[in-house]
Design a protein around this nucleic acid. Structure first.
Lengths: 367, 367
DNA sequence: AGGGGAAATTAAAACGTTTCCAATCCAGGG
DNA sequence: CCCTGGATTGGAAACGTTTTAATTTCCCCT
């Protein structure tokens, strides 16, 4: 068959326009627009005729033309490192859900942790006319970070858009950005307390990342709990291996080899806990019999870990929802408000009193 | 301070337009456009002047105006049940990555499995002028499904957009839709073979969902492997509990109570395996000592299961990448092409010979 | 010096909506 | 019967860009 070769990339065909609908219905474009957008009342008879014509022609409005004349559209953008992380994915889902429930469109972009890509994405969102951008996920807070975020804030604000930081710090309280995050210090304090009440004294924090404010706050909560229990500052042992399954596995393996004087591990998040759990098992030890482990975030799979993981639940989806809810309603956001969401610990089976623990305090789950 | 109360929702401010840049640079709008879009060569001197003006004014192009005159924009939409599922999230990331690498924008939408929301989203994408929509994720294939997809295909095709189905069937090979998926039957066949070679004869398939073509194909591969090993058809035992951690846990618990005559479990996917693993542990049995378990998909966390899960690796991100790569290049897509991607099994520690297995075949990992 | 033509630039049309403003129509009151 | 006013509708401008066709500018060659 001697047909011409089709081009590779799909190219938009001419679409049915409002003018054609108008002609078919025998009314003006203005009337069609009024019926279809519902911005102005139209008598039932004409309305029916227009609707009929629109259906017949399979008319689809052109969102770009609409946005152009309407001065932008209702759209929020979420930016995160990756959607493959269970926690981030849940936050994104929350943002999307809350946005959708208000008829807003939600665009999610991933950066892979590359500041350059983050910047490009924010720029893109500016072109797209996003009215709200949500930056989620911890980062190490250095000068480059501060400058970058200050720039976003200024640029978005001058376009009339709002910026919310989820779980990452604002470089300056005077900057027009809203921050919404969990109370990491309180959560870490609580779960460390749980370990302490079970009788543990040698507790190591696995997964520090100096400069990452979320992790720093957890470490602070951990230290505070230790201190309140009368332990000396030296009792705190934090290993700065960062986050991720692999990091947790590696660090734990090394820890078991070099530093045997601990009975419990507080993992920086559940992924680290997963890696640590595996390392412990590989070393021939059992959780919680030999070593107790707790995590952070309560990802969906934490319940199915072996053993089911005791962790602190940070309602990630709610974080996302809260971010857009607050940003969309709060006129004060420009003041640089700071919202802290609560968390609570969920007790499962990865903690028990240490092997030769003094029985001065009852174990949490006698069974 | 007697200032008026700010409105709740952010409202787009007037943006700097190309006309203002033109005035400041002392050239016409056309010239500015040419410099900024790079569609036409412009001498260095003017170019510099325009760029300068653009920077000074912090000009940001209006994507809508561009798309309007340019006849749409390069955009692909991915639709999935939820981004919280590790497998789906990886597919989405693949689509996004491949799209981004070609300068296309990627919009992801979640439906929560609701056909109504899927339909609304596709409609929205039509308005937005998406040139490619990727529908990912298994579904049960009934009449409603077929009709719905046929409708999408027709609607998108008439708009010049392409449709690709990832892991879900095309209702009709003549329909203008491309399907890209893994060879589920082959994968299931291989991993069942792995179980059989280890000496297992009582293998139950946990997580069937009749009508879901992906799962049906896995069941078919499972049955075929059994048959090839000379087992009678009655040897196949598939429990139709569907997918998900909870379903896996529930079904496995019941199975252990009612049907003790099996030594291995083939879980429909890794999440089912996670639930099953926990159920087995709760029952006081050990994996793989008492029961062997295999999963499907090799989600990132599968490596950290306890024990690390033997499963079949379906490179999810590659699936996403392939979907857009093929759709964007293949002019034949309209013919209803069907692409099958290969998989391979990854052996970890959740399989060993059954307790009293006849030693007629050597175990796979003697250790 | 004049002419030819390429290069640079511009004015204006077009993209598909929404909405302002004006025009038309109809009913009811004076 | 005319006038007022609200309801309904239509014409046209506007949104911000790209691009076509036309115009100007510039340079080089004879």
């Amino acid at each position: 068959m001697g047909n011409d070769m089709a081009e590779a990339e799909p190219t938009a065909k001419r679409r049915v326009t409002i003018r054609e609908v108008a002609e078919r219905a025998g009314v003006s474009m203005a009337t069609v627009s009024r019926v279809l957008s519902g911005n102005h009342p139209v008598p039932a008879s004409t309305r029916a005729r227009v609707l009929r014509a629109s259906r017949d022609l399979d008319y689809v409005a052109n969102a770009h033309a609409r946005a152009l004349v309407g001065g932008g559209r209702k759209m929020v953008a979420v930016v995160l490192r990756q959607v493959t992380s269970p926690f981030y994915a849940q936050v994104a889902e929350g943002v999307e859900a809350e946005a959708a429930s208000r008829g807003w469109l939600c665009l999610v972009g991933t950066t892979g942790g590359d500041p350059q890509r983050e910047l490009e994405f924010v720029q893109l969102m500016r072109e797209e006319g996003a009215r709200l951008v949500v930056l989620v996920g911890g980062v190490v807070e250095d000068d480059a970070y501060r400058e970058r975020v200050a720039h976003y804030a200024q640029a978005l604000d001058s376009a009339g858009a709002r910026l919310v930081l989820c779980g990452r710090p604002s470089p300056d309280p005077d900057i027009p950005a809203l921050v919404v995050e969990f109370d990491n210090e309180a959560g870490a304090h609580a779960i460390t307390g749980h370990l302490l009440s079970a009788g543990h004294r040698g507790i190591v924090f696995l997964g520090g990342l100096p400069g990452n404010t979320a992790l720093d706050a957890r470490v602070a909560g951990y230290r505070a709990a230790l201190a309140e229990h009368g332990l000396p500052p030296e009792a705190a042992h934090v290993v700065d291996c960062g986050l991720g399954r692999a990091a947790g596995h590696r660090a734990m393996t090394q820890l078991l080899k070099e530093t045997p004087d601990f009975t419990a591990v507080f993992a920086g998040d559940d992924m680290v806990a997963a890696g640590a759990l595996r390392a412990i098992t590989e070393a021939g030890l059992r959780v919680p019999h030999d070593i107790s482990v707790v995590g952070y975030n309560d990802i969906p799979l934490a319940e199915d870990f072996n053993p089911p993981l005791t962790t602190v639940r940070t309602p990630a989806e709610e974080l996302g929802r809260a971010a857009v809810r607050i940003a969309l309603r709060d006129p004060e956001h420009a003041a640089g408000a700071h919202h802290l969401l609560g968390t609570h610990i969920v007790v499962r089976d990865s903690v028990q009193p240490p092997p030769q623990a003094p029985r001065d305090e009852a174990p949490d789950h006698p069974h």
